[in-house]
Amino acid sequence: MKVLMGLVVVSLLVYVAERVDIVRLGYQIERLKTERAVLQRERDELRVKVSKLSSPERIAHLATDRLGMMQPRKDQVVLVHVGPLSPVTSGTAGSGIQLARHVPSK
């Protein structure tokens, strides 16, 4: 009889402990979900920022206005056809490689 009572008490305690644990985990899951949402939002924001910063319009503007770059003139660009026998062509066989000739600054 005593053993039986003991078993009932122990299993009740285990049950209660489990329930408490479930509730605790539930809160933890909710907290992590909120955290995930914040991180996702941050990722989305950064993605938009990256896209904004890498826009060709902005880069061209920075290159020409801030760094003083310009579109190479036709006579400053030499197209070299890389033949299949050249030793450096293994990866780029057949493709044209653009060489911009150095132009001494005025």
């Binding site: 030499v78 197209l79 056809h81 450096v88 044209g96 653009q98 060489l99 911009a100």
Partner: peptide, 17 residues
């Protein structure tokens, strides 16, 4: 694809990958 006359023969060609 037009062949280019290349006038750099006396110097070693500089290859830009």
């Amino acid at each position: 694809q037009e062949p280019v006359k290349f006038a750099m023969a006396e110097r070693a060609p500089v290859l830009v990958p």
